[in-house]
Each structure stands twice: as structure tokens, then as C-alpha cells.
């Protein structure tokens, strides 16, 4: 059957998914909670740590930076396995805590590293000026440097959200019935008997849309974020 180029659009599938019989709203909520929580944790710790890394003078700095990069870039299956074994011992399989923790394994090193590159671009002289005027070291960071790094912080946050939101592998292993995220729900629609393409594609659209909008919003920082700060 040839494809039709003129067709009558319908929103029935979406209506069905969000109706009271479906669990879709619940999966959406799980996705939002897991990605937002891991983003907040990673941003807070990553900003403080990134600032310290950018300003501090460390011996063996290259070893430290190598460690951070390899944590972020480790193949997901190789990270998933030990986490799964540890989580089963701790009873964290199928819980939100486990999933947030799993997402933090890649978002924290990412935020730490990228925020470090943003802070390196801000001259330390500005903080020193603030400290001469009587700020404490933390106040100088909070009032002078952090506002200047704000655009970078927003971009980092959005990228962290995207990495967690788009994840399927971790969620497929670490979530259970009640903690399923949207990508897992999408995969179940095609792996069960009788593939439901309408719903699968509608679910796919719901996964893609917010990230496309957010991505366009941070496009200026995209190169930097996705090249781990090596290209500005």
C-alpha cells in the first residue's frame, strides 16, 4: 500500500493515553522526577566542585580530570552491571532512589567537568576584588562568580536533564512496574504481542518534543557541552 501524503490527523491516541484507564501520566511523572532530581543533585555538587577544581592548584590534576572524564564516558552496560548487583543487595531495584543514583553516575561528572570549564573562563581577579571589599571566599563565589556563570549553569542543567530523560538502558533494568519511565513504556508497546505503532509513535513524540525545544534554547552551549568543553 503506497503511503498517503494527505491524511486526516487525529489526536485520539493521545487522548487515550492520558485518559484515566492508562498509566501514562504516572510514567511521565516518574521520568520527570528521576531526571529533575538527578539534575539538581549534579548541579549543586558539580558547581561547587567545578569551582574548586577551576581555582585550586592540585597536584596530579591530570589524573583527577582523567578520572572525572572516564566516569562520564564509561560504557553504560559496564556501569549498569555492578550497580545492578549492588542495588539488589541494598534493595534499591525498582525504586526511584536507585534510578536517581544511576543517573547521577553520569550527570555529576558531566556537571563537575563542564562547570569547571565555565569557571576557568571567568578571571579570578573579580573574586579577589570582591574579597578586598570584605566578602568571604564563599560570598565572593556566590555573589560575583556564580551570577557570571549563570548561562553556563542553565545550559549544563538542561543537558543533564536531557541525558537522564533520554535514557533507556538504566531505566529498563532498574525500574519496576510502578517506577517505569516513559522510554521503558515506549519499548514495552513494541515488544509485547501485537505492536501498537500508534501509541509507540505518540509516546516517542512526547519523549522528543520537550528535549528539542530545550535543546534549541541552549544551542549556543551545545558544542561545548557535548565535546566535554574541549571545543568552545
Amino acid at each position: 500500500m503506497p503511503p498517503k501524503f494527505f491524511f486526516k490527523p487525529t489526536f485520539d491516541t493521545y487522548r487515550q493515553m492520558f485518559s484515566s484507564t492508562g498509566n501514562f501520566g504516572h510514567y511521565l511523572w516518574n521520568s520527570v522526577v528521576a531526571s529533575v532530581l538527578s539534575t539538581i543533585i549534579s548541579l549543586v555538587l558539580g558547581t561547587l566542585g567545578g569551582f574548586a577544581l577551576a581555582r585550586g592548584n592540585f597536584k596530579r590534576e591530570s589524573d583527577l580530570s582523567f578520572w572525572v572524564i572516564s566516569t562520564r564516558m564509561a560504557p553504560i552496560p559496564a556501569v549498569m552491571l555492578p550497580l545492578y548487583l549492588m542495588f539488589s543487595k541494598l534493595g534499591l531495584i525498582g525504586t526511584m532512589t536507585g534510578l536517581v543514583f544511576a543517573y547521577t553516575t553520569f550527570n555529576l561528572p558531566f556537571a563537575l567537568w563542564i562547570m569547571m570549564t565555565f569557571f576557568r573562563d571567568i578571571p579570578p581577579a573579580l573574586e579577589e576584588a570582591g574579597m578586598v571589599d570584605g566578602c568571604s571566599k564563599f560570598e565572593a563565589f556566590w555573589r560575583v562568580t556564580l551570577p557570571m556563570a549563570a548561562p553556563g549553569l542553565v545550559a549544563t542543567g538542561i543537558l543533564c536533564l536531557m541525558f537522564a530523560w533520554n535514557d533507556y538502558s538504566f531505566a529498563s533494568v532498574f525500574t519496576g512496574q510502578s517506577t517505569q519511565t516513559v522510554p521503558v513504556a515506549a519499548s514495552l508497546l513494541v515488544s509485547q504481542e501485537g505492536v501498537q505503532w500508534g501509541q509507540a509513535m505518540a509516546t516517542g513524540t512526547i519523549i522528543i518534543l520537550p528535549m528539542v525545544i530545550a535543546g534549541i534554547f541552549v544551542r549556543k552551549y551545545l558544542v561545548r557541552g557535548l565535546s566535554m568543553g574541549a571545543v568552545k
Binding site: 533507556y168 509513535m201 516517542g204 528535549m211 528539542v212
Partner: peptide, 11 residues
């Protein structure tokens, strides 16, 4: 770049 790999596979 913003499309989840799982959706790329589904598509």
C-alpha cells in the same frame, strides 16, 4: 541530537 536513541530505534 536531541532525540532519545530509543526513539531513533523505534522510528
Amino acid at each position: 541530537l536531541f532525540v532519545a536513541p530509543i526513539v531513533t530505534g523505534l522510528l
